[in-house]
């Protein structure tokens, strides 16, 4: 499971970085989205991987090993919301630049 998660994060990051460095705004935005998926998975992994354990500690529970860490899940939720909002905003600016420059090159002109 660790291997699969690590591979997933690695592939997503690699694709994200490669796309981020491409000259078209659409590629950049997809790259940023892929990077955000990778980062969210990574935050998840930092809470340690645990299968079949609820992230809820009920009153009187003593054995912390029986539960998954709830905090990274809350962090991921926040990060997803913020990332989503920023991507939407970026999309608007991207369209504005497309309208002004008439091209989808990130520098606003073809080389």
């Amino acid at each position: 499971m660790e291997l699969i998660l690590a591979l997933a994060i690695g592939v997503l990051t690699a694709c994200g970085v490669w796309l981020l460095l491409r000259p078209r705004t659409f590629q950049v935005i997809i790259g940023l989205s892929l990077l955000s998926y990778a980062v969210n998975l990574f935050i998840f992994g930092m809470g340690r991987l645990r299968i079949n354990a609820a992230p809820i500690v009920h009153h009187g529970a003593v054995d912390s090993l029986a539960f998954a860490d709830p905090l990274p899940q809350a962090l991921v939720l926040t990060a997803i919301v913020i990332g989503f909002a920023m991507t939407a905003l970026f999309l608007v600016v991207m369209l504005a630049v497309r309208g002004f420059a008439g091209t989808d090159h990130v520098d606003g002109r073809e080389r």
């Binding site: 981020l20 705004t25 950049v28 940023l32 990077l35 955000s36 980062v39 913020i82 920023m86 991507t87 905003l89 970026f90 600016v93 991207m94 504005a96 630049v97 002004f100 420059a101 990130v106 520098d107 606003g108």
Partner: peptide, 16 residues
């Protein structure tokens, strides 16, 4: 708009 595009892309990457 063009400066904004670069600024947002860089800051999003920095946020990650």
């Amino acid at each position: 708009a063009r400066a904004g595009l670069h600024y947002i892309a860089i800051n999003l990457a920095a946020s990650f």
